[in-house]
């Protein structure tokens, strides 16, 4: 079996002012063992909610349905206690802002020890030496000393490294990363991405990385899923999607990315994503799509298979294919 995580028809609903709205509207995805899946999308497309749904983390009143399988195990039917045993242990998560993801009143080392202690019965001294080893592994100099630092005493890049070390503490099978480099400057960003690849090679873990940055996606992805308004609109191998995007939204995203040597005005996708409280009928991208027709606004398009393991949800694909200029 090559899939580590299999998500099927995932729906995450919230109540907003007594009305039920869905932030994730039927997402199906596979994460391959030892590979990186990048989820690409704008702010508010439901990427982060989906990522949290994998860990069954939801605000009060939210409902998650569908199926999430880690290996052979269904995660959505697990008890809260069982989920606590999985979080941080088999699935770990990294957040965008390392400063706020670390408790300001704890020394960095203590927080990592806490994670290990939640899942493994080991002595304090042993946990400490493990933490020092981890911090060294993620490239933090003189780890024994840095363990005693408070989060505010570290630089942004160092903090993100510490958070990564915390995620690696129990050698998870799957690492979820929610825009892990967005808060960092570009040089540090490149270092952190390289670190991700190195730890992936060493631990053989799968990574799900959420980003809105196509550059990051191109650098990291084995597979890409493009998310729009709570749905996957295109999914496939990174190479195919970046070189021959099928869905008009993906085409728009790629064209809105500056390229080397490009002159003139950068093109942008007109309009705004639809509000979660007012989802249109049919294709949710139709209102912003340059190629939309009347049928698009009636029924949501199904996925069209488009080459090997490459799918996209658009009516146009049945006849013509949109091509990036």
């Amino acid at each position: 079996m090559t899939e580590l995580l299999k998500i099927d028809n995932l729906v995450t609903e919230f109540s907003i002012q007594k009305k039920r709205v869905s932030a994730v509207r039927g997402v199906s995805l596979q994460v391959r063992k030892g590979k990186t899946l990048v989820i690409l999308g704008e702010s508010g497309s439901g990427k982060s909610v989906m990522l949290r749904s994998i860990l069954n983390l939801k605000p009060a009143g939210a409902r998650i349905s569908g199926s999430i399988k880690l290996g052979e195990e269904e995660l959505l039917t697990k008890s809260p206690k069982e989920m606590e045993g999985i979080r941080g242990n088999r699935i770990a998560m990294i957040f965008q802002d390392a400063l706020s993801a670390l408790d300001p009143l704890y020394r960095v080392g203590e927080q990592i020890v806490e994670t290990i202690a939640a899942h493994r019965k080991i002595g304090k001294a042993e946990a400490k030496s493990q933490v020092a080893e981890l911090l060294g592994k993620v490239g933090i100099p003189s780890p024994e000393e840095r363990m005693r630092a408070f989060p505010h005493e570290m630089s942004g890049g160092m903090r993100q490294r510490a958070v990564i070390a915390m995620a690696l503490a129990c050698k998870p099978d799957l690492l979820l990363a929610d825009e892990p480099t967005t808060a960092l400057d570009v040089t540090i960003q490149a270092q952190i991405l390289r670190l991700f690849k190195e730890i992936q090679a060493e631990y053989g873990m799968s990574i799900v990385l959420v980003t809105h940055d196509i550059g990051v996606a191109a650098e990291m992805a084995d597979d890409i899923a493009v998310m729009y308004a709570g749905k996957i609109v295109e999914y496939g191998r990174a190479r195919q999607i970046l070189s021959a995007p099928a869905h008009p939204y993906t085409v728009g995203l790629i064209e809105a990315t500056p390229k080397r040597g490009q002159k003139g005005k950068l093109s942008a996708i007109p309009g705004q994503p639809p509000l979660i409280t007012a989802m249109p009928e049919g294709c949710s991208f139709a209102d912003r799509c340059p190629m939309a027709r009347s049928s698009c606004r009636e029924v949501t398009p199904a996925f069209t298979h488009y080459g090997e393991a490459h799918i996209a949800a658009c009516y146009l694909l049945e006849e013509e294919q949109p091509v990036a200029q």
Binding site: L55, G88, N89, D103, T115, A118, A169
Partner: peptide, 13 residues
């Protein structure tokens, strides 16, 4: 605070 969510994702009850 996000560190509470981070603690949850690390499996803290």
């Amino acid at each position: 605070e996000e560190f509470i969510e981070a603690a949850k994702t690390s499996g803290a009850g």
